[in-house]
Design a binder for these strands. Structure first.
Lengths: 189, 189
DNA sequence: GCTTGGTGAGACAGATATGTCTTATCTGAT
DNA sequence: ATCAGATAAGACATATCTGTCTCACCAAGC
């Protein structure tokens, strides 16, 4: 009998591959997903059930991933700019998967996931509000906009790398500079 | 006989509605698209041909819209910051449609559209390079990243409004402030 | 009134996707 | 060697989507 941790690990690897396949092509058929995940269509059904169940599982997993990134970044209590940098660096890998799935209408009718999204939005919201209270972030932009803006920047960076215009290692600097300092030339450099 | 302008106008309205339907739900069936565009499925096929043709038509139309926005903003020769403001304001309405379609794999195999995208990317690229040469934009970030970054910001703003967190009238200020000045509190205010 | 052009509703066959099942194969444990 | 568990491959019925066709309807022009 295999050890539990290995079972879970293999299962998580599978979820990861399925998530990647769905992110790259959201309308992929179960056959395409199975091929991309390197399993048979039968196994996909055995493990996840129906296609709807599969999408739900992937979606829940992505929400967990996001929570983990938030937890690890110290979004709730670490010094603001330090948490910011960790947030950018750690959320970059899941940016596209996350975005592609939240931008889709299929799950609008699932209150559980709507709530999960709303909770994470609120958490990011509080982060920027905290940064404003600490005098780090400018107070004349709504925290919600700062949150959306950061999300968009991270996704743009993902596409920049995906399109071959930059390396993954440059992402933290590019996002940090653009978001924090803006694009204008300024005397202080 | 109806006047030509009315025919064209009605046809363009239809394309617009189809584009909206496809943007909101990229995997919509022809029946759903027809319902959303308020025509019958038969008419949809009569006007556009196959689903593939329909998507191609919408895609080409969006590329034209984008060109028109670029032309009208003075992206190629107007003063940089003035063009920037017009660019943000005018591209905001088509942001989601444009993004949803370029992020999709269906048209990767159509060289014509790839070229259209590449041309527009290059045009935006030159804009930021010009801004850097003029000393307006900071020179330590690649123009390509500035282009992607702006695109992401505009799309984030679109979602911010769509989610009810801001009004469309606030978009220019939000995007301009975040992109140009950054989110940091600074002495100069 | 009559005709013409365009439309919507519905039916239809063909193609594709889905979910299930059966069978053969492979791997690890006994 | 044998067995148990899981998988891949393929077949299968069902459901959905697509493209086309027919027919009835409606509005504009003669």
């Amino acid at each position: 009998m295999m050890e539990v941790s290995e079972i879970d690990g293999e299962r998580e690897d599978l979820v990861q591959r399925v998530a990647n396949a769905l992110s790259a092509n959201h309308g992929a058929s179960t056959g395409e997903i199975a091929a991309a995940a390197d399993v048979s269509r039968a196994t996909l059904h055995r493990v996840f059930g129906s296609r709807e169940d599969l999408v739900g599982t992937v979606y829940g997993w992505l929400l967990e991933q996001c929570d983990r990134v938030f937890d690890g970044s110290g979004i709730d209590d670490a010094p603001v700019l330090e948490a910011f940098d960790r947030l950018v660096e750690d959320s970059y890998p899941i940016a596209q998967s996350y975005w592609m799935l939240i931008a889709k209408p299929e799950l609008e009718s699932v209150p559980e996931f709507q709530q999960g999204i709303a909770d994470q939005d609120a958490r990011l919201d509080r982060f920027f509000a905290r940064g404003q209270a600490d005098g780090v972030f400018r107070p004349d932009l709504p925290p919600r906009w700062l949150a959306y803006s950061l999300g968009g920047q991270i996704m743009s960076a993902w596409y920049l790398v995906d399109d071959g215009h930059a390396g993954a290692r440059e992402v933290p600097r590019l996002v940090r500079t653009a978001v924090i300092e803006g694009v204008l030339t300024r005397p202080g450099g």
